[in-house]
Amino acid sequence: MKRSRIAWAIASKDLRIELRSRIVANQILPFAAVIMVLFAFALDSDSVLQRVAPGLVWMATLFSMIVLVQRSYAIETEDGAFDLLRLSGLDPIGVFWGKTLALVVQLLLLEILLVATAILLYNTTVSGAWIGGIGFLGSGWVLLVTTLITATFGLAAVGTLYGGLAAGFSGRETLLPLLVLPVVSPVVIGATRAMESAFGTAGAVVSEGWSWTGLLLVFAVAFGVGGSLAYGPLIEE
């Protein structure tokens, strides 16, 4: 089977399971929304919330991402499906990209929800008009969408890689955050700064944000390639 076909089959399998079980919709998305509300309680100031909204969006994304990755491998290990997947002789690179793509879709949904929450609850706005007015690249919306997509690919690749490593071992729930959170620190830095530019937080302008998406892109490529190479040796045991 061709690599892209494998990836597609795995991704659609994962997404179909999520669509039917509704664990993501009924548990993980509300969890993320609760985090955003709790941040507001903890910081308790409209101006502070507006200032740190981009950072909070990404922190909430990371916490929810840990749960999403665990869920992504729970559906594999529960019925021993992961062992069968390993025994099936499918190309591990295809499997890696399949699981990554499914995570990308779920993470994007999550991030859209979180951005909407930030706009609604924290009173932030996206700077610039929809496309047009001040030019295509000058629009905060274009920057925002680019940031979400590049950051998400990096996060999903890391999540798939380390989730696969921890899957099937006792203590994986506690190991995963320890492994994933330090690794994604460049994404937190880059994505937060880029989103600050898109939101116009503290006078940040949109043009500054584009250099940060460069960092996000490098990270996504590094872990896309690194993950493709490392996934096979990590799960084939």
């Binding site: 620190s185 460049p186 830095i189 880059g190 940060w212 960092l215 990270f219 590094a222 490392a230």
Partner: peptide, 15 residues
């Protein structure tokens, strides 16, 4: 992988 990570982290923190 950790060795791949170190330059990335260092670069992003520097930025």
């Amino acid at each position: 992988l950790s060795v791949l990570l170190i330059p990335l982290v260092h670069w992003s923190v520097r930025l």
